[in-house]
Structures are given as C-alpha cells and as structure tokens.
Design a protein around this nucleic acid. Structure first.
Lengths: 194, 194
DNA sequence: GTGAACTTTCAGGAATTCCTGAAAATTAGA
DNA sequence: TCTAATTTTCAGGAATTCCTGAAAGTTCAC
C-alpha cells in the first residue's frame, strides 16, 4: 500500500467498516480512496496505490458502479476509464438510501405483505402475523419519511436535521395559532396531538 | 427446521438479511424466531425449532445479548434461561441505533477527528482532510439528530415521521409569525432560510 | 481488419467465517 | 459437598467468501 498517512488510515478504517457491512474489505478501500481523491482515478492508479490485483480492482469498481456509488468518466485523449465519487456528500447519502431500499427494504416489505394476506392456522401463527404487521408498519413509516425528506434541498434538509426534535415544538404550536402571517400553510384536519 | 409456514418464511428471510448485514445467518434466524414468538423461548426450544446445534444457539444468544437485542428471564421453578425480544418494536429501533453508534459511528468519528488535527503535508492530503471534515460534519449532524429525536415519546416520534417534510412548511412559517398563542417558542437568531 | 491498450471473466487456491461435538464450567438443589 | 441439569468454551472440519493470474473480450487508432 502506497499512500500518504492521513489517507492510509482512512482507507484502512473503511476497509474494516466495509467488511462489517455487506461489502468486502477491498471494495471498501477502493471506495474510501476514491472518496478522498482530488481527481478521478483509473484502475491502474488504484491497483498501484492499494496494492491488490488488477482484476480485484476491476470487480470492485463493477460492484461500486452497480451501487451507483462511483461514476465513470473519460479524459480526452486517454482511453482509460476514470472513476470518482459524487462531490456532494449528501448526494452519497441519497444514493445509499435508495439502493438499500431497493435491495433490502423492498424485498422485506413484499415478504411481509405476502405473509399478511395468509390465514393464520393457529393462535401462535396469529400472533406471529400481528408482529409482522407491526414491523411492516414501522418499516413503511420510516421509508416513506426517508423518501419524503430526501426530496428537500440539501440546505433545507440540513436545517431540518439541525433543529431535530425542537421542530416538534413548532409543530405542536401549529394548532394553537390564531394569526398566521403569509398564510402559506394549508388547513388540514386536526390530528390528536400528544 | 420445524416451524409453521408463516413463521418459517419470516425466519428464513431474516437469516438471509442477517448475512448481508454483519451477523451470521443463524443469528438472524434466532432473532427472527424470538421476535415472532408469543412467549419467551429457551435454548432447547430454539435448537429444536431451527435445527442447528445447541452450541451454535448458545453462541448466537450470547451475541444477541451483547447487542441488547434479546433479554434473558427466568420462569419460577425452571432452571433454564428464557429469551425474548422487547415487546415495543420502537424500543428495538432505539437499541439498534444506540449499539450501532457505539460500535461503528463512534470509532469512525474518532478516527476522523484524529485525522483532522494532523497537519497535511501536501495539497492532496489537504484535500483529503477537507473531505474527511465534510464526512465528519455529516455524521455528527445525523447522529445528533438521531439521538435527539430518540428521546421523544413513541407517539410523538411517529407523528413527526408521519408529517415528514411537511413539517418544514410549519418551520419556515415560524419566522413569519407575528402573533403566537401560548408563546412557548423561544426566540432564536434568524437563520438564512433556503 | 489488425494490433496495442485496456477491461472483464472465471477457475481455483487462500483466507475467513461458520458451525459442530466433545469436554469443561456453572448452577442449584439435596 | 455431591450430582444432575444446564450452559459455555473451543479445536478443528465444513462452508463461504475473497482474491489472484491467466486468458478471453473489447475498443480504438491506424
């Protein structure tokens, strides 16, 4: 491995993290390297810097591409393929959320839905089905929320996260408002506040 | 494997999911089984239902316990140990978030902080450090937010998720308010809205 | 259409992780 | 303290995943 020290510790760390998660250590390292790189890198650059085989790098890039975590580009007058990660780190979060939903959440939801339409044969199965219904509701709620807020502008999203649970106070207040300047808020049926 | 059909497909699914994530297939299955069970189960119950070795079950339960995902209890007049998952599914989400923070996020943040206090030797390292700073900021923001909202009552949390990005509208409105009934909102310096 | 530059595929060896059975350890009651 | 019930440990075989080198495939310039 042929890297400056700061880069190296980051790359090694994400290699380990990657393997705790679904991806292999080398794929994690490739991604980490690209994330830090000032300019797009080609497969040989990566091979040379990380010190594993060319074919492994090729497979790794293929996997990262399938996750849409790296994008491919070309330099004029150079036949080689160059890879980079999105500049905007929030874009990375969005992509990760989408891909994970597609690969893990959606299949889980459809398994649960399938189970929920079956007729339970015993009280035990009935209870199991109730638990699955709870889980289905929870996952749907979280995914809907996540899809919903992903549509916000990055700046708006950051603001929203920054206020965190305090936003709840504003929200509670909503129903107590008598006068609203601007009036952009659409009237909605009053929900039972906690 | 000796399970009613509904339970079985759930258990198998979570076995597979588990192995995509950091835990082994059998640990995933044990958890899934406990999640659906009407009553706490002992290790022999689990061995019999899932059909793998007693020692594997023991190790699996140990791992799940270390994640605080199952809890141990005793039945009067029975020496064996019984295991169950929390009734409240939101409690499970809270525990998972905490444990993952402890095991993955915190070490990552401290690696990043370490890197951020070093003096970069080259422009490349300088850029790498900037990227790490971005990542550090993002992770901190998300974890803070997550810790913050985890403190809410379950009911309140659900409400908040249900309104999703629409809460932003109320939030934007805040700065335009002239009259507030109740006046619970503390004045804060006006931030640049999106 | 040929050849050089570059990329991908894939069989199989290396490394890792998983799982088991046997044995050791723990626990509670007598 | 002894014994039987129960749980835990752990060495090593089984299964899986990872990684490599060699070969095949692709692409572009000429």
């Amino acid at each position: 491995m042929n890297l400056p020290p700061l880069t190296q510790s980051f790359v090694l760390h994400f290699g380990e993290m990657g393997s705790r998660w679904g991806i292999s250590r080398t794929v994690g390292q490739i991604y980490a390297l690209l994330f830090l790189a000032e300019n797009p890198l080609n497969a040989d650059d990566i091979t040379e810097k990380l010190g594993f085989s060319r074919s492994n790098v090729s497979m790794g890039l293929k996997e990262l591409t399938s996750w849409r975590l790296v994008k491919l580009q070309h330099k004029p007058g150079d036949r080689r393929e160059y890879f980079s990660t999105p500049e905007d780190i929030w874009e990375i979060v969005r992509i990760l959320a989408e891909e994970r939903r597609k690969r893990e959440i959606d299949p889980t939801l459809s398994m649960l839905r399938q189970a929920l339409v079956e007729t339970p044969a015993t009280p035990g199965e009935r209870h199991a089905q109730d638990r699955m219904a709870e889980m289905h509701g929870l996952i749907e709620l979280i995914t809907r929320w996540s899809e919903d807020i992903q549509k916000l502008e990055t700046e708006t999203l950051i603001q929203l996260l920054e206020v965190g649970s305090k936003v709840q106070k504003v929200f509670e207040m909503k129903d107590r408002l008598k006068v609203v300047a601007g009036g952009k808020l659409r009237r909605r049926p009053r929900t039972e506040g906690q």
